Simulated assay, not measured.
Amino acid sequence: MADDQHVEQELPPLDTLAARLEYLFEKIRPTPEELGDSNEPGRKYTNKEIADKINAMASETGVSISAAYIGELRRGVASDPRTSHVRALADVFGVNSGYFVDDVAARRIQEQLTLLSELRRMDVKQVALRQVLADNGLSATDTQLIEQMVARLRAVAAGTGLGDADAAPDGRS
C-alpha cells in the first residue's frame, strides 16, 4: 500500500502542446481574488477566463485570443500556435514560455508545480508554527526538531488509530 502513495508522485508525460496546456489547467487554479464571491474554491480556470486574462492585456501586448481557440489547443485540434499566443499563455499561467517548447523546461516546471501542490496540501499550519517558534527565539535547528517531533507524534497516533482529539494523556480514550 505504501507504493500506492508514490504512484501519485509520478509525473505524467508532457509530449504535446495540448498535454502541456492541459497540465497547467489541471494544476493552476484561480486565486481567491479572481473567484470573487463565487462559491467554487479550487475549481479549474475556464477557457474563457484565460482568454479574458490574455485579452485584458491586449492593449499592452498586442495579443488577443478566443476561448474557442484555447479549447482547440487544449484538445490538440490546433497544435501550432503563434509565438505570441504561446508567450501570452505562459504569462497568464505564470510559467516560462520555454515550458511549451522545451522538454527540460517542461519537466522542471512540472516538478515545481508538483512541489507547490504538495506544499499547499500540507497546509499553512507549518508556516504558522515556524513563525510562532521564531517569534519565541527558537533557532531554525530547534524549529526543525519540533516539526520532526510533531510528525512523529502524528505517525504514532495514526499507527494506534488514535487521532489528536481522541488521545488522552493517560492512554485511555
Rank of each mutant, 00 (worst) to 15 (best):
L119R: 14
Q110E: 05
R107V: 06
D80R: 15
E118W: 01
K125F: 08
E118L: 13
M122I: 04
E118H: 11
Q131I: 10
G98A: 14
D80V: 12
K125C: 04
R120L: 05
V132G: 00
K125T: 13
D91Q: 13
L133W: 02
Q110K: 05
F93T: 02
V77A: 14
V95C: 08
L133N: 01
A78R: 15
F93C: 02
V86R: 14
S84I: 11
V101W: 09
V77H: 12
A90N: 06
H85C: 07
D80C: 06
D103N: 12
G98W: 03
D91V: 05
L133R: 10
E111W: 03
V132C: 03
E111I: 12
L115F: 08
G137T: 01
Y99D: 01
N136D: 09
L133V: 03
F100K: 07
L115A: 11
V86P: 01
E111F: 04
R75G: 09
L73C: 07
L129Q: 11
R107L: 15
D123A: 15
Q126Y: 10
A78C: 06
R107H: 12
D91H: 10
V77D: 13
E118P: 00
V86S: 07
A106D: 00
L116P: 00
D91I: 02
Q126P: 00
R87K: 15
M122R: 10
T83W: 11
R107P: 00
V101G: 07
Q112P: 01
K125Q: 13
T83V: 14
L133E: 00
L73I: 07
V95W: 09
L129R: 14
G76F: 07
L129S: 10
A106M: 02
Q112I: 02
D80T: 15
L119I: 09
D80P: 01
R75D: 14
L89A: 04
N96F: 03
E111Q: 14
S79F: 10
L116G: 09
N96G: 04
D123F: 05
S79Q: 15
V95I: 10
L116N: 12
F93L: 03
G76L: 08
L119C: 06
E111S: 09
L89F: 10
L89R: 05
F93W: 04
V127I: 11
N136V: 00
D80F: 11
A90Q: 05
S117T: 07
V104G: 04
E118D: 09
R120G: 02
D135P: 00
L119T: 06
S79M: 09
L89E: 03
L133P: 04
Q126E: 08
P81C: 11
D102P: 04
S97H: 10
S84A: 14
R75T: 15
V104A: 14
R74V: 03
V101R: 08
G137I: 02
A78G: 06
A88C: 11
S84G: 04
M122P: 00
A88Q: 09
